[in-house]
Simulated scan of single mutants.
Amino acid sequence: MSAPDAPLCRSLDLPDPQATADLAARLGARLQPGDVLLLEGPIGAGKTHFARSLIQSLLTEPEDVPSPTFTLVQVYDTEKGEIWHADLYRLTGPDEAVELGLTEAFETAICLIEWPDRLGDLVPPGAAHLTFTATGEDSRALTLRLTDPRPDLLEFLRDI
């Protein structure tokens, strides 16, 4: 058995955008307020597609889910509570993340954070790291790393 703070990793091949969307919906069904997903990878790796798919899977009424590249944060109301989708690419430091209200949202909302390196040491303990890599025109590789996951997220990691 791993120590509680040892990361648990799983690597997956996602052959097409639908496979990415399906995984996002399956993970979204397990999330609850206080869960933070750090979406890592270069531009075009699939972070925003994954986030959109997850958000759309939890909305009771379909709505447009734009990239928050220019707005920095988009907030959605769902039956599970608020979902915060943040794109921190344009931030210059962690203080700007605090100004956006992200540190409070980490405790009360489901948070999907693109470009989480901009958080510096504000990354909450227990955040899930999802690293995307383009492996072809439509295919992606995903490495999912959890540290101290809740039991249902651990079960999810084992089941995928």
Rank of each mutant, 00 (worst) to 15 (best):
C9G: 05
R10S: 06
P15Q: 11
P17R: 02
A19T: 05
A21L: 02
A24G: 08
R26P: 02
A29T: 04
L31Q: 12
L31P: 10
L31E: 13
Q32D: 14
V36T: 07
L37D: 12
G44C: 07
A45E: 08
G46K: 09
T48E: 10
T48V: 02
R52S: 07
L54E: 11
I55R: 08
S57G: 12
L59T: 03
P62W: 03
D64M: 12
V65C: 04
V65M: 06
P66M: 10
S67K: 11
T69L: 04
T69G: 09
L72Q: 07
V75Q: 07
Y76H: 08
D77T: 13
T78K: 14
E79Q: 15
G81Y: 07
E82Q: 15
I83W: 08
A86I: 04
D87Y: 01
D87H: 03
L88H: 02
L88V: 02
Y89I: 01
Y89M: 05
L91T: 06
P94E: 15
V98S: 09
V98P: 01
E99D: 15
E99T: 06
T103E: 15
E104G: 10
E104Q: 14
F106S: 12
E107I: 00
E107W: 00
T108P: 02
T108N: 13
A109M: 05
I110E: 03
I110G: 11
C111D: 06
E114Q: 07
E114R: 09
W115Y: 09
W115F: 07
P116S: 10
D117T: 04
G120L: 05
G120D: 12
L122V: 07
L122C: 10
P124K: 10
P125S: 12
G126F: 03
A127H: 05
A128N: 01
L130A: 06
L130S: 10
T133K: 15
A134E: 14
T135A: 11
G136F: 03
D138F: 08
D138I: 01
L142Y: 04
R145I: 01
L146C: 09
L146Q: 14
T147Y: 05
L154W: 02
F156L: 06
F156W: 15
D159Q: 15
D159H: 06
I160K: 04
